[in-house]
Design a protein around this nucleic acid. Structure first.
Lengths: 225, 225
DNA sequence: CAGTGGTCTAGACCACGCA
DNA sequence: GCGTGGTCTAGACCACTGG
């Protein structure tokens, strides 16, 4: 246990226990230096870590204070479908339904590859996927058939770093979607819309449709970081 | 711009641009010290920040390497319904439907307060809420009527720090739910199940049901932290 | 304007893990 | 072994901001 970790944990414990309530001023850095017999840099690292985690707020001249709780964000596990299905003990497969180049796509500065397909669990439809891949941002995609490998898997391995935005909502499968997913029409489905950028330019946009009874998303909030 | 921020940004830029691909070894700390003319502590802080953000991996003896991308997590904005509705220009209200003490609740070590109610947007149903509050963890809740204030709002102000787990799925409103939400039966809804703990003990468990066409969740992934 | 946190330095010792 | 990152020290100067 490092000194930094000890300082952090002992402050955490006082916050979790309620001994130090939101708004409470925690000891000044120089007081912690004296209490732990360590250097100020070590205290500062511990407090920075707590601040990053959102547990405390630091204000010049005033000191550091227990933050007011805000459970307004959580880490969402965005599923890798192959792993999800393997974890359930199922057999994952990808089935390509459509592949073509679209020359004009809204919000895309260049032509895009349009890929439609189905993720299957042990032979049964699991999720419907409709995807666009910018050929400007990912020229190599033009050479891929995506017949055997799902485009998401391929992209993870061929596009360096991206940012992404997900929109999650409930919707009803229309007639065509229900047929492909082997559902009654109007069955409740989870719709995941994800757009991915790299250096501000769109890389891919995908819509995944999951039957509501076959899949759910998990998001965790932990004040540690 | 601090030295630390400059180091971090210049490394980020090389990663985002693709100049340094996943697996690439970035300069050793002592090389960065020489390149930037700063101390090793400053370089180390910059690299620690990149490591926390998941952009690089640091290995003793070997060096630091560009990490392989994993868009497998994103930050989910968990909505404060009052704010969501205010941001849309609507008028938020909470309507209490039921409040009673349940002596035995699964997974709760003590009796719990059961609160059912409706979140309203400009008078129209927006979300159905069914909540349990542990009276062992939050004894003060017993003195609250929750007639005027939604329990989530009250809890944020009165319970110290928590961890939380959310489950998100699509489901169909049953007859009673559809009636309360003013929907046709079997309308697709987004179901948010959240359990909150403090020191390992459950504090509250809530189920919120949103008509699919009235609400969606947003989750962002940015490699920065 | 005084005291806080923010940032930085030039060292040091250690533990780990590859050769 | 030996070089790397992990941690720490005992200072220092600065910028901000609350009283």
């Amino acid at each position: 246990m490092t000194v930094e970790a000890r300082i952090r944990q002992e402050i955490e414990a006082r916050i979790y226990s309620g001994e130090w309530k939101p708004g409470h001023r925690i000891p000044f850095e120089h007081e912690l230096v004296a209490a732990y017999g360590c250097s100020r840099a070590t205290v500062s690292k511990a407090l920075s870590s707590l601040s990053n985690a959102g547990l405390i707020e630091r204000r010049r001249k005033a000191g550091s204070f227990v933050a007011h709780p805000q459970v307004h964000s959580a880490v969402l596990e965005v599923p890798d479908l192959a792993q999800v299905i393997a974890a359930r003990g199922g057999d994952y497969r990808w089935s390509l339904m459509n592949r073509r180049v679209e020359t004009v796509v809204a919000d895309f500065p260049s032509p895009a590859l349009r890929i439609d397909g189905l993720h299957l669990e042990s032979g049964a439809p699991f999720a419907l996927e409709q995807r666009l891949i910018s050929l400007g941002a990912v020229p190599g995609a033009a050479d891929e058939s995506f017949a055997a490998e799902a485009p998401g898997t391929w992209l993870l391995q061929h596009v360096p770093w991206t940012s992404a935005r997900h929109r999650i909502r409930a919707t009803e499968a229309d007639r065509a979607e229900a047929r492909m997913l082997d559902l009654r029409p109007r069955t409740a489905c989870l719709e995941l819309l994800r757009t991915t950028w790299r250096n501000g330019a769109p890389v891919t946009r995908v819509r995944q449709l999951f039957p509501g009874d076959r899949f759910d998303l998990i998001a965790e909030f932990k004040p540690d970081a």
